[in-house]
């Protein structure tokens, strides 16, 4: 090819060539580590995950084991977070409870993503009758209910239990994701690169999955992270009301519920699970902000 043309391409400074994906990943991680709060949140989450995974080895006691010699004991060297009305170790129950709470948070959001993303994507891409009159009206209707009331109703219909609670929470979160994804898709669809892909004869499915979705992904990920926090609270609320985890399995919500009767005598039974719910939700939120900075600095 003609030499002058090859020269017109801007000269790039000499540097070690690495794969383009690796380079952009490095840059993204660099941005994440600039957000100190996000890093702190991430670290706390990491600790929670480790606690949840290695609970049997890390918990000092069996969380279900009742000890009538140690009922309603305050925090001590033996029981760091005290014991409850059945003499169970609160710390051990919190460590095991982390399993339930994290699982509930993640799986509920996964359900919401699994249903919401495809519907939002297709709905926003093709528009038309289905989008405008069916999907949007259904999500409108669902969004007009207070989400906890809706989750409560669904959980009551499905029956008590953790799995049903997660499904209920997931369904309640789904319209949020449909809306978000659809909005993102509508915005991306107007961009010229989508038109260019259509002009190049790329199929609609490929355009949706390979072109639009990656460009819409950042806000979806941020919303998903933040929703995990919401889902943990929802699960705790359902458990608190007796529709989530069933005794004697510990979950932060059910512990809170059980502890409320003793709030004046033995506040630690309710305070510690409450504190962990707060810390977990808080750290997920700041971590989510960090993820946002990482994925797309312009979103801020």
């Amino acid at each position: 090819m003609s030499q002058t043309n090859a020269q017109t391409a801007a000269p790039y400074p000499n540097r070690l060539e690495s794969s383009p994906r690796l380079r952009s990943l490095k840059k993204a991680l660099g941005r994440f580590f600039q957000n100190k709060l996000g890093v702190a949140g991430g670290l706390f989450l990491l600790i929670l995950v480790i606690l949840a995974i290695f609970a049997p080895w890390l918990a000092p006691y069996n969380p279900m084991k009742q000890d009538y010699m140690a009922i309603l004991q305050g925090p001590s060297a033996k029981h760091w977070f005290g014991t409850d009305d059945l003499g169970r170790d609160v710390l051990s129950r919190i460590i095991y409870g982390a399993r339930v709470s994290l699982k509930a948070g993640i799986i509920s959001v996964a359900i919401a993503l699994a249903i919401g993303v495809p519907i939002g994507l297709i709905s926003g891409y093709f528009r038309g009758f289905w989008d405008e009159f069916i999907i949007m009206r259904i999500t409108d209707a669902m969004l007009s209910f207070p989400s906890l009331v809706l989750a409560l109703t669904l959980a009551a219909v499905f029956g008590a239990g953790l799995n049903n609670a997660m499904l209920a929470i997931g369904l309640v979160y789904t319209p949020h994701f449909i809306r978000l994804v659809r909005g993102q898709v509508l915005a991306q669809r107007e961009r010229e690169y989508v038109e260019a892909a259509i002009a190049a004869g790329i199929s609609h499915w490929r355009i949706m999955l390979r072109h639009i979705l990656p460009n819409a992904w950042a806000p979806i990920m941020v919303q998903a992270t933040l929703s995990v926090a919401g889902a943990i609270i929802s699960e705790a609320s359902l458990s608190f009301l007796g529709l989530g985890t069933q005794p004697p399995t510990p979950s932060w919500g059910s512990m809170l519920s059980e502890g409320q009767g003793y709030i004046t005598q033995a506040p630690w039974i309710a305070v510690f699970p409450g504190l962990f719910i707060f810390l977990a939700v808080m750290s997920i939120n700041v971590f989510g902000d960090g993820v946002r900075d990482m994925l797309d600095p312009k979103l801020k």
């Binding site: 383009p20 961009r191 010229e192 690169y193 038109e195 260019a196 892909a197 002009a199 190049a200 004869g201 199929s203 390979r210 072109h211 990656p214 460009n215």
Partner: peptide
């Protein structure tokens, strides 16, 4: 139609918006 589209292509105005930013 897509097959015929292969014969007719377009170069767009905006050098910034017409390329997918997430694809090499």
């Amino acid at each position: 139609r897509r097959k015929l589209r292969k014969e007719m292509q377009m170069v767009f105005q905006d050098p910034y918006g017409s390329l997918n930013p997430r694809m090499t």
